[in-house]
Amino acid sequence: MDLSDELEKMAANAAHNRAGEQQASSQATVVRWQKLFRYSHSKAWEMIEQHRSNYCRESVSYEHWELVREEKEVQGYDREAYEHGLEIGWRKVKSSAATIDGNCVKQAARRQRYIVRLEKDLTPDLIRKISGWKGPLEVIDGRGQNGDERFCIVSSRIRQALLQQLPSEPTIVRIDEEEKYLSSESRYPTLGLDTTLPQFRPNNCEGPFLPAQDEYPVWCFFYGTLADSTVLTRHLSLTEDPKLYPASITGGLIGTRGGKYCALLDGRENGKVRGCAFQVMTKEHEDALRLYETGNYEVVRCAIEFDKRMVQGCTFRFVGEVDR
Protein backbone atom coordinates (compact mmCIF):
# COMPACT_ATOMS: atom_id res chain seq x y z
CA MET A 1 0.00 0.00 0.00
CA ASP A 2 1.42 3.43 -0.95
CA LEU A 3 1.40 6.55 1.23
CA SER A 4 -1.74 8.03 -0.32
CA ASP A 5 -3.70 4.82 0.33
CA GLU A 6 -2.45 4.73 3.90
CA LEU A 7 -3.47 8.34 4.49
CA GLU A 8 -6.88 7.69 2.98
CA LYS A 9 -7.38 4.72 5.31
CA MET A 10 -6.34 6.79 8.33
CA ALA A 11 -8.75 9.56 7.35
CA ALA A 12 -11.61 7.08 6.92
CA ASN A 13 -10.90 5.52 10.32
CA ALA A 14 -10.73 8.94 11.98
CA ALA A 15 -14.08 9.90 10.44
CA HIS A 16 -15.61 6.61 11.55
CA ASN A 17 -14.30 7.22 15.07
CA ARG A 18 -15.87 10.68 15.26
CA ALA A 19 -19.19 9.32 14.00
CA GLY A 20 -19.32 6.63 16.69
CA GLU A 21 -17.33 8.26 19.48
CA GLN A 22 -20.28 8.69 21.81
CA GLN A 23 -21.42 5.11 21.31
CA ALA A 24 -17.95 3.67 21.92
CA SER A 25 -17.72 5.36 25.30
CA SER A 26 -21.11 4.08 26.46
CA GLN A 27 -21.64 1.36 29.01
CA ALA A 28 -23.69 -0.57 26.45
CA THR A 29 -20.70 -0.81 24.12
CA VAL A 30 -18.42 -1.96 26.94
CA VAL A 31 -20.93 -4.67 27.83
CA ARG A 32 -21.19 -5.69 24.15
CA TRP A 33 -17.42 -6.24 23.98
CA GLN A 34 -17.45 -8.09 27.31
CA LYS A 35 -20.03 -10.51 25.99
CA LEU A 36 -18.58 -10.98 22.50
CA PHE A 37 -14.88 -11.18 23.36
CA ARG A 38 -14.98 -12.42 26.99
CA TYR A 39 -13.21 -9.31 28.25
CA SER A 40 -13.44 -7.96 31.77
CA HIS A 41 -15.08 -4.55 32.16
CA SER A 42 -11.75 -2.73 32.34
CA LYS A 43 -10.24 -4.77 29.49
CA ALA A 44 -13.23 -4.06 27.24
CA TRP A 45 -12.93 -0.34 27.90
CA GLU A 46 -9.19 -0.46 27.18
CA MET A 47 -9.62 -2.40 23.93
CA ILE A 48 -12.34 -0.04 22.67
CA GLU A 49 -10.09 2.96 23.27
CA GLN A 50 -7.12 1.17 21.71
CA HIS A 51 -9.14 0.18 18.67
CA ARG A 52 -10.38 3.73 18.10
CA SER A 53 -6.98 5.33 18.55
CA ASN A 54 -5.39 3.04 15.95
CA TYR A 55 -5.95 5.06 12.78
CA CYS A 56 -3.82 2.61 10.77
CA ARG A 57 -6.03 -0.41 11.48
CA GLU A 58 -7.61 -2.43 8.70
CA SER A 59 -11.16 -1.11 8.53
CA VAL A 60 -14.29 -2.78 7.17
CA SER A 61 -15.88 -0.92 4.27
CA TYR A 62 -19.52 0.10 4.42
CA GLU A 63 -20.18 -2.17 1.44
CA HIS A 64 -18.66 -5.16 3.27
CA TRP A 65 -20.59 -4.37 6.45
CA GLU A 66 -23.90 -4.16 4.59
CA LEU A 67 -23.30 -7.66 3.19
CA VAL A 68 -22.86 -9.22 6.63
CA ARG A 69 -24.83 -6.78 8.74
CA GLU A 70 -28.07 -8.72 9.15
CA GLU A 71 -26.30 -11.91 10.25
CA LYS A 72 -23.82 -10.19 12.58
CA GLU A 73 -26.34 -7.92 14.30
CA VAL A 74 -28.36 -11.00 15.26
CA GLN A 75 -25.18 -12.32 16.92
CA GLY A 76 -24.76 -9.06 18.85
CA TYR A 77 -22.15 -7.30 16.70
CA ASP A 78 -22.15 -3.76 15.43
CA ARG A 79 -19.72 -2.68 12.72
CA GLU A 80 -17.02 -1.67 15.19
CA ALA A 81 -17.19 -4.93 17.17
CA TYR A 82 -17.17 -6.94 13.93
CA GLU A 83 -14.07 -5.04 12.83
CA HIS A 84 -12.35 -5.82 16.13
CA GLY A 85 -13.33 -9.47 15.84
CA LEU A 86 -11.61 -9.70 12.48
CA GLU A 87 -8.60 -7.91 13.89
CA ILE A 88 -8.02 -10.27 16.80
CA GLY A 89 -8.73 -13.23 14.55
CA TRP A 90 -5.67 -12.32 12.50
CA ARG A 91 -3.34 -12.48 15.49
CA LYS A 92 -1.92 -15.59 17.14
CA VAL A 93 -2.59 -15.83 20.85
CA LYS A 94 0.77 -15.96 22.59
CA SER A 95 -0.33 -15.86 26.22
CA SER A 96 -0.65 -19.29 27.81
CA ALA A 97 -3.23 -17.90 30.20
CA ALA A 98 -5.25 -16.51 27.30
CA THR A 99 -5.11 -19.96 25.68
CA ILE A 100 -6.43 -21.52 28.87
CA ASP A 101 -9.30 -19.04 29.02
CA GLY A 102 -10.03 -19.58 25.32
CA ASN A 103 -10.26 -23.30 25.98
CA CYS A 104 -12.65 -22.54 28.84
CA VAL A 105 -14.98 -20.72 26.48
CA LYS A 106 -14.91 -23.68 24.07
CA GLN A 107 -15.60 -26.08 26.94
CA ALA A 108 -18.56 -23.94 28.00
CA ALA A 109 -19.95 -24.06 24.46
CA ARG A 110 -19.65 -27.85 24.47
CA ARG A 111 -21.63 -27.93 27.73
CA GLN A 112 -24.63 -26.23 26.14
CA ARG A 113 -27.74 -28.39 26.38
CA TYR A 114 -30.70 -28.83 24.02
CA ILE A 115 -34.18 -30.35 24.15
CA VAL A 116 -35.12 -32.74 21.32
CA ARG A 117 -38.76 -33.68 20.76
CA LEU A 118 -39.10 -37.46 20.62
CA GLU A 119 -41.22 -38.92 17.85
CA LYS A 120 -42.24 -42.37 16.66
CA ASP A 121 -39.16 -42.60 14.46
CA LEU A 122 -36.86 -40.72 16.84
CA THR A 123 -36.32 -42.61 20.08
CA PRO A 124 -33.62 -42.39 22.78
CA ASP A 125 -32.13 -45.64 21.44
CA LEU A 126 -31.84 -44.16 17.94
CA ILE A 127 -30.28 -40.97 19.35
CA ARG A 128 -27.67 -43.05 21.15
CA LYS A 129 -26.98 -45.09 18.02
CA ILE A 130 -26.57 -42.05 15.77
CA SER A 131 -24.42 -40.09 18.19
CA GLY A 132 -22.39 -42.98 19.60
CA TRP A 133 -23.37 -41.94 23.12
CA LYS A 134 -22.97 -44.87 25.53
CA GLY A 135 -24.49 -43.38 28.68
CA PRO A 136 -28.12 -42.82 29.68
CA LEU A 137 -30.14 -39.94 28.25
CA GLU A 138 -32.41 -37.72 30.31
CA VAL A 139 -36.00 -38.03 29.09
CA ILE A 140 -38.71 -35.70 30.38
CA ASP A 141 -42.46 -35.38 29.89
CA GLY A 142 -43.99 -32.10 28.81
CA ARG A 143 -46.61 -30.40 26.73
CA GLY A 144 -46.09 -29.42 23.11
CA GLN A 145 -48.29 -28.15 20.31
CA ASN A 146 -49.94 -31.56 20.06
CA GLY A 147 -50.57 -32.08 23.76
CA ASP A 148 -48.54 -34.38 26.00
CA GLU A 149 -45.17 -35.19 24.50
CA ARG A 150 -41.76 -36.56 25.51
CA PHE A 151 -38.47 -34.78 25.15
CA CYS A 152 -34.83 -35.75 25.47
CA ILE A 153 -32.05 -33.51 26.78
CA VAL A 154 -28.86 -33.74 24.70
CA SER A 155 -25.45 -32.10 24.47
CA SER A 156 -24.23 -29.92 21.61
CA ARG A 157 -22.20 -32.86 20.25
CA ILE A 158 -25.26 -35.12 20.11
CA ARG A 159 -27.31 -32.31 18.55
CA GLN A 160 -24.71 -31.88 15.81
CA ALA A 161 -24.74 -35.62 15.06
CA LEU A 162 -28.55 -35.61 14.75
CA LEU A 163 -28.53 -32.63 12.39
CA GLN A 164 -25.89 -34.25 10.20
CA GLN A 165 -27.29 -37.78 10.01
CA LEU A 166 -31.09 -37.62 10.24
CA PRO A 167 -32.90 -37.36 6.88
CA SER A 168 -35.12 -34.54 8.17
CA GLU A 169 -34.30 -31.91 10.78
CA PRO A 170 -35.72 -32.78 14.22
CA THR A 171 -37.32 -30.25 16.56
CA ILE A 172 -34.44 -29.05 18.73
CA VAL A 173 -34.52 -26.09 21.12
CA ARG A 174 -31.58 -24.67 23.05
CA ILE A 175 -32.09 -24.64 26.81
CA ASP A 176 -31.73 -21.02 27.84
CA GLU A 177 -29.74 -21.56 30.99
CA GLU A 178 -26.93 -19.71 32.64
CA GLU A 179 -23.47 -20.65 31.41
CA LYS A 180 -21.09 -22.34 33.82
CA TYR A 181 -17.51 -23.39 33.29
CA LEU A 182 -15.07 -23.01 36.19
CA SER A 183 -11.52 -23.74 35.05
CA SER A 184 -9.42 -26.18 37.07
CA GLU A 185 -6.25 -24.64 35.59
CA SER A 186 -6.75 -20.95 36.38
CA ARG A 187 -8.95 -18.48 38.27
CA TYR A 188 -11.17 -18.13 35.20
CA PRO A 189 -13.81 -16.84 35.50
CA THR A 190 -13.61 -14.53 38.53
CA LEU A 191 -15.71 -11.42 39.08
CA GLY A 192 -13.74 -8.26 38.38
CA LEU A 193 -10.55 -10.05 37.26
CA ASP A 194 -9.04 -10.32 33.82
CA THR A 195 -7.42 -13.71 34.38
CA THR A 196 -5.11 -13.29 31.38
CA LEU A 197 -3.16 -10.49 33.10
CA PRO A 198 0.28 -11.54 34.46
CA GLN A 199 -0.57 -10.90 38.11
CA PHE A 200 -3.58 -13.22 37.92
CA ARG A 201 -2.01 -16.08 35.95
CA PRO A 202 -1.51 -19.37 37.79
CA ASN A 203 1.88 -20.46 39.04
CA ASN A 204 3.19 -23.82 40.20
CA CYS A 205 2.37 -23.08 43.83
CA GLU A 206 -1.32 -22.35 43.23
CA GLY A 207 -4.27 -24.65 43.17
CA PRO A 208 -6.69 -26.12 43.50
CA PHE A 209 -8.83 -23.29 42.10
CA LEU A 210 -12.07 -23.17 44.05
CA PRO A 211 -14.94 -23.61 43.88
CA ALA A 212 -14.54 -26.50 41.45
CA GLN A 213 -16.94 -27.07 38.56
CA ASP A 214 -19.04 -29.72 40.28
CA GLU A 215 -18.37 -28.91 43.92
CA TYR A 216 -21.36 -29.19 46.27
CA PRO A 217 -22.36 -27.77 48.59
CA VAL A 218 -21.19 -24.40 47.31
CA TRP A 219 -21.76 -20.90 48.65
CA CYS A 220 -23.51 -18.51 46.28
CA PHE A 221 -23.94 -14.76 46.44
CA PHE A 222 -27.42 -13.54 45.52
CA TYR A 223 -28.60 -10.05 44.67
CA GLY A 224 -31.86 -8.78 43.24
CA THR A 225 -34.83 -11.16 43.14
CA LEU A 226 -32.93 -14.25 44.28
CA ALA A 227 -32.09 -12.47 47.53
CA ASP A 228 -35.83 -12.63 48.27
CA SER A 229 -36.50 -15.74 50.39
CA THR A 230 -40.02 -16.07 48.94
CA VAL A 231 -38.71 -16.24 45.37
CA LEU A 232 -35.97 -18.68 46.34
CA THR A 233 -38.35 -20.96 48.24
CA ARG A 234 -40.80 -21.09 45.35
CA HIS A 235 -38.20 -21.62 42.63
CA LEU A 236 -36.28 -24.37 44.46
CA SER A 237 -39.46 -25.95 45.88
CA LEU A 238 -37.99 -25.74 49.38
CA THR A 239 -39.97 -27.20 52.27
CA GLU A 240 -38.59 -24.68 54.76
CA ASP A 241 -37.40 -21.08 54.66
CA PRO A 242 -33.91 -20.75 53.14
CA LYS A 243 -31.04 -19.57 55.32
CA LEU A 244 -29.90 -16.30 53.78
CA TYR A 245 -27.01 -14.38 55.33
CA PRO A 246 -26.39 -10.66 54.73
CA ALA A 247 -23.17 -10.63 52.67
CA SER A 248 -20.99 -8.62 50.32
CA ILE A 249 -18.55 -9.22 47.46
CA THR A 250 -15.92 -7.01 45.85
CA GLY A 251 -14.96 -6.45 42.22
CA GLY A 252 -18.45 -5.80 40.91
CA LEU A 253 -21.07 -3.15 40.36
CA ILE A 254 -24.84 -3.30 39.94
CA GLY A 255 -26.52 -2.01 36.79
CA THR A 256 -30.12 -2.35 35.66
CA ARG A 257 -31.81 -3.96 32.69
CA GLY A 258 -35.35 -3.52 31.52
CA GLY A 259 -35.65 -0.57 33.85
CA LYS A 260 -36.12 -2.71 36.96
CA TYR A 261 -33.92 -5.83 37.11
CA CYS A 262 -30.52 -5.89 38.81
CA ALA A 263 -27.52 -6.89 36.69
CA LEU A 264 -24.12 -7.65 38.24
CA LEU A 265 -21.16 -6.51 36.13
CA ASP A 266 -17.40 -6.43 36.54
CA GLY A 267 -16.42 -3.33 38.49
CA ARG A 268 -13.41 -1.83 40.18
CA GLU A 269 -11.21 -4.02 42.35
CA ASN A 270 -12.56 -2.43 45.54
CA GLY A 271 -16.13 -2.03 44.27
CA LYS A 272 -18.45 -3.57 46.86
CA VAL A 273 -21.85 -5.09 46.22
CA ARG A 274 -24.22 -6.09 49.02
CA GLY A 275 -26.67 -8.96 48.96
CA CYS A 276 -27.08 -12.38 50.57
CA ALA A 277 -25.11 -15.63 50.86
CA PHE A 278 -26.86 -18.97 50.39
CA GLN A 279 -25.42 -22.46 50.43
CA VAL A 280 -26.51 -24.48 47.38
CA MET A 281 -26.53 -28.09 48.46
CA THR A 282 -27.10 -30.04 45.22
CA LYS A 283 -26.53 -29.87 41.47
CA GLU A 284 -30.29 -30.04 40.95
CA HIS A 285 -30.74 -26.82 42.89
CA GLU A 286 -27.90 -25.19 40.97
CA ASP A 287 -29.44 -26.26 37.64
CA ALA A 288 -32.74 -24.70 38.72
CA LEU A 289 -30.96 -21.45 39.56
CA ARG A 290 -29.17 -21.43 36.20
CA LEU A 291 -32.47 -21.85 34.37
CA TYR A 292 -33.96 -19.03 36.46
CA GLU A 293 -31.15 -16.65 35.51
CA THR A 294 -31.20 -17.76 31.81
CA GLY A 295 -28.43 -17.42 29.25
CA ASN A 296 -28.11 -13.69 29.96
CA TYR A 297 -25.94 -14.61 32.95
CA GLU A 298 -22.88 -16.73 33.66
CA VAL A 299 -21.53 -18.35 36.82
CA VAL A 300 -18.31 -16.73 38.04
CA ARG A 301 -16.12 -17.17 41.09
CA CYS A 302 -16.05 -14.58 43.84
CA ALA A 303 -15.02 -14.15 47.49
CA ILE A 304 -18.08 -13.82 49.72
CA GLU A 305 -17.82 -12.00 53.04
CA PHE A 306 -20.48 -12.72 55.64
CA ASP A 307 -20.87 -13.62 59.31
CA LYS A 308 -17.32 -12.32 60.00
CA ARG A 309 -15.71 -14.76 57.58
CA MET A 310 -14.66 -15.02 53.95
CA VAL A 311 -15.52 -18.00 51.73
CA GLN A 312 -14.83 -18.83 48.09
CA GLY A 313 -18.08 -19.07 46.22
CA CYS A 314 -19.96 -18.19 43.06
CA THR A 315 -22.29 -15.52 41.80
CA PHE A 316 -24.16 -14.68 38.59
CA ARG A 317 -22.60 -12.09 36.27
CA PHE A 318 -24.74 -10.45 33.60
CA VAL A 319 -23.48 -10.78 30.00
CA GLY A 320 -26.16 -8.83 28.14
CA GLU A 321 -26.69 -5.12 27.61
CA VAL A 322 -27.70 -2.94 30.55
CA ASP A 323 -29.75 0.24 30.49
CA ARG A 324 -27.82 3.37 29.65
Rank of each mutant, 00 (worst) to 15 (best):
D2Q: 06
L3C: 01
L7H: 07
K9H: 04
A11R: 15
G20N: 13
E21T: 01
V30R: 15
F37Y: 14
F37T: 00
R38V: 03
K43D: 07
W45G: 01
E58C: 11
V68P: 02
E71Y: 10
R79A: 05
H84S: 00
K94V: 07
S96H: 11
A97P: 01
T99C: 00
Q107I: 02
Q107Y: 14
A108L: 12
Q112K: 14
Y114F: 15
I115P: 00
L122V: 12
T123N: 10
R128H: 04
G135N: 10
G135A: 13
R143I: 14
E149T: 13
F151E: 02
C152N: 03
S156P: 00
R157H: 06
Q164V: 13
Q165Y: 15
P170E: 08
E177R: 14
E179W: 07
L182Y: 09
L182I: 04
P189R: 15
T190S: 10
G192V: 08
D194A: 11
E206I: 01
G207H: 06
A212R: 15
Q213G: 03
F221L: 01
A227S: 15
S229W: 11
H235W: 12
L236W: 13
S237R: 15
P242D: 09
L244I: 06
Y245C: 01
I249M: 03
G251P: 04
T256M: 07
R257M: 05
Y261E: 09
C262H: 09
D266Y: 13
N270I: 03
R274C: 10
K283L: 09
E284M: 06
R290N: 07
G295W: 03
E305I: 07
K308Y: 11
M310F: 03
Q312R: 09
V319R: 15
G320K: 05
